[in-house]
Amino acid sequence: MMKQITKIPAAIDLEKGSNDFCPGCLHSASFKIVSQTLDEMGLFDKSAYVQGVGCCANALGYIRIDTIACPHGRGCAVAGAMKRCMPDTFIMTYQGDGDLAAIGMAETMHSANRGDNITVIFVNNGIYGMTGGQLAPTTLLGARTTTTPFGRNANEHGYPMHMCELINTLEAPSYIARVTCTDPANIRKAQKCVRDAFQHQLDGKGFSFVEFISNCPTNWGMTPLQSLDHIKNVVLNEYPLGVFRDK
């Protein structure tokens, strides 16, 4: 007798429409981890989800969860207001690096500084994916993008922005972690970190933040498997994984 051991999370509806992410995009993987955790913790029908602008909005085509799509970068501000109005609802935001670290920097840092009781899922692929591969604040030094055809140069374009480390300088946030989904072991660790972050919100401890190091095979000009190797060999040297704070 064969028993089913894997389950498609309740928040993902493959019949509803198409999953518009590119082949190999780890956005789908991080959203899958988030929705599995919602299922495990029984939060699926009492949660609301703030959708950022950018590639992460491709998820709208195939998800089944209460969603508000906010103006560019304002995810944390919208989520903080929702949490104040509906304290019993589980609120999370799902944002990319152009949304959270560039245009939404002020909202994110002030929300973290106030210690809003929300969970922020930040997917960092080091490039503006949806608009065609421009320089993002998190792009690595030397990386070629359409706006830096000779590579990112520190004198001209500055250094990569480390969001976990920045938020770690504030007093209020309660949980900060950086994870990736490049291999099964890291996926298990990411599941644990997301579960811990959600638990911090349920316990009312304040701002919890999980950064996913992601890839962009299309704009990095690589195959999906090459992009995973690039994350392991290059990107993780700049952005070390780990739990930065758990109080």
């Binding site: 007798m1 051991i5 894997t6 992410f21 780890l26 993987a29 099964p184």
Partner: peptide, 21 residues
């Protein structure tokens, strides 16, 4: 062997794994 690692790794939830009970 029904380990389920492929389904864990699949970003698009395209794989479902069954295992001998």
């Amino acid at each position: 062997i029904g380990c389920g690692i492929c389904a864990l790794m699949c970003p698009d939830s395209a794989l479902t794994v069954f295992k001998e009970d």
